[in-house]
Design a protein around this nucleic acid. Structure first.
Lengths: 336, 336
DNA sequence: GCAATTGTTGTAACTAGTTTCACTTCGTGC
DNA sequence: GCACGAAGTGAAACTAGTTACAACAATTGC
């Protein structure tokens, strides 16, 4: 005897069970106030009995709306995007929109694949970090006409609205701070530049601060371990440098830990500064000096802009939030 | 003159433009090999011209499938779930499924709301961390019949399959390690227990290790800062304890940093051990001793189980992965 | 040379909802 | 006692796809 595949009940089933028309059931679901109370209760009973749940797809097909927004982000592995994602998600929720996160591992191919996935799911909007994406992705967005907002980056003339911050300025702030403290010999530690325009911008921001500082760039994996690796490969325990400027707090942690492991005193022997201000930065020992990126404001605003774009079709303006130097304990004046 | 709302082209439009029937267009999309090459090219030209993109909702309504799986997780703020989520997402991708992540902030109300959202989106499956959820959520799952898999927890007789690890055993391992090193006076630092059954299990696992160790429990916020706070409130810089057993690596970092700030030597003066083995644990100074949770295997397996359940209807068996003591540098024999 | 098979395409019926329009009541106003 | 408007409901058309079935032409087999 085959198991009776009790398939999901649909509107028609409910209508039949309640002895009303499908239109009435639909009304009970959407505008219950126009239905006679008696009828409504009858329908509700049938709904409960049949364990009816309206199909989201069928709804979407009529309204043309899925209420899903997609976000492509490189990774969830580190705190870098967590706060932003969380505030986007929360704010989006206020508009009845949900966020779907897909990770790209900074690989253009995977980014395209995941974007395709998101489009297939039926996302109504797309968040993209940075402006550097494959032509194929731009094509896809252009073809589908999906509202797209760039975050973590600011470039007012870009094809999509950018709601973010000035990465150059952020890194400029941190270098200026080091210079003010008298540091001239600075190691700049950063993640993969080829695949990440935020990193490239920050590197550029550091290079263009007019100064007589000598900069040495070190590229490594974007992780705590990556930061450690840089220091471990340096001659003289890295003490040839006055300071380490890390283009991400995550890297700063790695640098800090590895220096400590080698007995180098921070900030007495060398200073360290990061960029981002992740939650842990305030707790490490010593507390990390850094430049705070406006992750939450940005996320909030980006979500609002997206919601508005989708609801009334008003394409948002690009917007730039300020970064802010947070001087804590890993930076100190240079010991002569 | 009003802006002509050029609405999205649909199958019918393409069919008309290409001079064929809708069925043929649908065939070009799904089984191009059965269509005459000439016809196919014609249709493809029309598709390109009209920038046609098939509606995911309309597809879903026919197949009854959205190919979306939902996951409810407390937070993305810390590394706790990142690796698991990432491996779930990756493995799910191999089956043509996408993951939607919704955060719950450990709040049953928000958990229910977000679950409702996921159901409305039309998720075909649901990942839930732990077994402790509101009746309303169970109700929702029961009503909708959505395949649900519990992760980060193991309890073979639970209403849903659990694919995870034994939290009691994990914390037991860490305490056993401390005891073996001669520590008897142990501070157990943990996150909010009321809202988190994994935490409760770990606390229990520690309590039930038969031993003559004296345990003191400290509950705090689940964050690096939370770990620091515990130490900062302790008399005598926390040195009344031989060791800190942190039920999460995140907390262990906070404890470590705060002890360092107070000049307490780790592991010479006190030992620290965590649970989880997040990426940073290997890089901190000193490197954190911990119990490695099988986050990636679990995520991978959970994704496979879910995919199988959805595809052929085979409800997965619960499965328990082993945790493993990772002895590094924050634990040492007790100095007498 | 005719039946059988294969290849290609179109018609129309499905999927599961929403929505328009028309209809029946019923209460009120005059 | 009848016109009028409002409330409540249903039939059918609509959303955008997939697919079963039928139709037809072009080969192939005998």
């Amino acid at each position: 005897m085959p198991v009776r595949e009790r398939k999901r009940a649909n509107l028609r089933d409910v209508a039949k069970a309640a002895g009303v028309s499908v239109a009435t059931v639909s009304r009970v679901l959407n505008t219950p106030e126009v239905v006679l109370k008696e009828t409504r209760l009858q329908v509700e009973r049938a709904i409960a009995e049949l364990r009816f749940h309206p199909s989201a797809a069928a709804r979407a097909i009529n309204s043309g709306r899925t209420k899903i927004i997609g976000a492509l982000i490189p990774s969830l592995d580190n705190d870098t995007y967590a706060l932003t994602i969380e505030s986007i998600e929360n704010r989006l929720g206020d508009f009845g929109l949900s966020l779907v996160v897909a990770t790209t591992a900074e690989d253009p191919k995977q980014e395209l694949r995941r974007a395709q996935d998101l489009v297939n799911i039926g996302v109504e909007g797309l968040f993209l970090p940075g402006v550097d994406h494959s032509d194929a992705l731009h094509d896809l967005i252009e073809r589908t006409g999906i509202p797209t907002v760039v975050i973590s980056y600011f470039q007012p003339d870009f094809i999509y609205p950018t709601i973010g911050y000035d990465n150059q300025k952020a890194s400029g702030l941190s270098l200026a701070h080091l210079i003010e403290l008298g540091h001239r010999n600075v190691a700049v530690v950063h993640g993969p530049a080829a695949s990440n325009d935020r990193t490239r911008e920050r590197a550029k921001g550091v290079s263009t601060v007019c100064s007589d500082a000598a900069l040495a760039f070190f590229e490594t994996e974007l992780s705590v371990a990556g930061g450690s690796t840089v220091v471990s490969r340096l001659p003289n325990n890295g003490e040839n440098f006055d300071a380490f400027l890390c283009l991400s707090d995550i890297l700063a942690f790695g640098v800090l830990f590895e220096l400590q492991r080698r007995g180098v005193l921070v900030p007495e022997d060398v200073s360290i500064i990061g960029i981002h201000d992740v939650p842990a930065s305030e707790s490490v020992f010593p507390r990390l000096s850094t430049v705070r990126l406006p992750a939450q404001q940005m996320g909030r605003k980006a979500a609002e802009a997206m919601a508005k774009w989708i609801e009334d079709g008003t394409r948002p303006e690009s917007e730039c939030f300020d970064s802010q130097l947070i001087q804590r304990e890993t930076t100190a004046p240079r010991q002569s």
